[in-house]
Structures are given as C-alpha cells and as structure tokens.
Computed example of a mutant assay.
Amino acid sequence: MGTLLVLWGFLLISLMAIGGFFMFRKFLKKLPKDDGKSVMDWEEYYIKKTLHMWEVKEKALLEELVAPVPELFRDVAKHTIASKIGHVALEKNQNRITQESIIEGYIIATPKRDHKFLRKKLKEKEIDVAPYEHLFTLSKSNYRDNWQSKYRKTKA
C-alpha cells in the first residue's frame, strides 16, 4: 500500500510539473518585451496583417508541413509558424504568401530537429533546398531573439 501511495504521489507531481512547464512557457510568451508588445502580440499582429494573403495552395502546404506535430500541439505550432511566415512576407513586401516565404518562415520558426522532416518533404515535392541552405545552417537558438538582423545579413 505504501509503494502505491508513493507511486501515485510521484505521478501527480510529475503531471503537475509538466503542466506547469507549459503554462510557464505560455506566461513567458505573454510578457511584454522592450517594444511593449509580447511575442504572442506580435504573432497575432502578423497573422491578422497577412490573413488575406494566404491562398488555398499555400494553406495546404503549411498543413502538410505541420502534419508531424502531435495533434494536441498542432494548432499552436501552425499559428506560430504562420505568424513567422507572415513576418517574412511583410519584410519582403509581398502581396501574397508564396512557397518561398513559407519555406523560409518554417525554417526560421522551427528548431533544427524539424529541418530534417522539411528537407525530406521538399525532396518529395521536388523543391530545391539550395536557396535555403543559409537558413538551415542557423539553429533556432542562434536567431530566435534577433533573427531579423541575422536574416538580413544572410540575404546580403
């Protein structure tokens, strides 16, 4: 009986720690940065600003790219990636979301471990990855905070 009670306590503490971790991450994304807006505020801004620029083909490509994400987290991942794609498209002054901006935004928004899947998917679709190699060489930890200036440097 004592062992069962200890296991039950360990399970509850573990589940609360996991839940607390994800709640804390969400809390950190909601904290305002130097410009007065939080990461989530900027995500919403880019989504709203570029919503009219998405076409069916591009939406389908984004759905394909986020398919390996577990269903529980897929909506959050799609939202985060779509906002980064919107940011890239606005930086380039595009009138619509293109396949190139989707790929660039996906690379910037995702950690390095997801790039293997992207390379595989692009190979299946017979899309050349050479124009994006400079982005693949960066890891998310290298450009997460200041990715705009590093992105501009690689384009120069």
Rank of each mutant, 00 (worst) to 15 (best):
9 G>D: 11
11 L>D: 09
11 L>M: 14
15 L>H: 11
16 M>D: 08
16 M>P: 04
24 F>G: 08
24 F>R: 07
26 K>E: 06
29 K>A: 09
30 K>R: 15
30 K>H: 06
30 K>G: 05
30 K>W: 07
34 D>M: 10
36 G>H: 06
36 G>Y: 05
40 M>S: 14
43 E>F: 10
44 E>K: 15
44 E>C: 12
45 Y>H: 12
48 K>E: 15
49 K>V: 03
49 K>W: 01
50 T>A: 06
50 T>Y: 04
59 K>H: 09
63 E>V: 00
65 L>M: 10
67 A>H: 04
69 V>K: 07
69 V>S: 04
71 E>W: 07
72 L>P: 02
73 F>G: 01
74 R>K: 12
75 D>R: 10
77 A>Q: 01
77 A>W: 03
80 T>I: 13
82 A>R: 02
83 S>F: 05
84 K>M: 14
84 K>H: 07
86 G>W: 02
86 G>Y: 00
86 G>D: 07
87 H>A: 11
89 A>S: 10
90 L>D: 04
92 K>P: 08
94 Q>N: 12
96 R>L: 09
96 R>I: 12
96 R>H: 13
98 T>G: 04
100 E>H: 11
101 S>A: 10
104 E>P: 05
105 G>I: 02
105 G>E: 04
109 A>G: 05
111 P>W: 05
112 K>G: 04
113 R>M: 13
114 D>R: 09
116 K>C: 01
119 R>W: 02
120 K>G: 00
125 K>H: 06
125 K>P: 02
126 E>Y: 02
127 I>G: 03
128 D>C: 03
129 V>N: 01
133 E>L: 04
137 T>Y: 11
140 K>H: 13
142 N>Q: 15
142 N>T: 12
144 R>D: 13
146 N>A: 11
149 S>T: 15
149 S>Q: 14
150 K>Q: 14
152 R>D: 13
152 R>C: 12
154 T>H: 12
156 A>W: 11
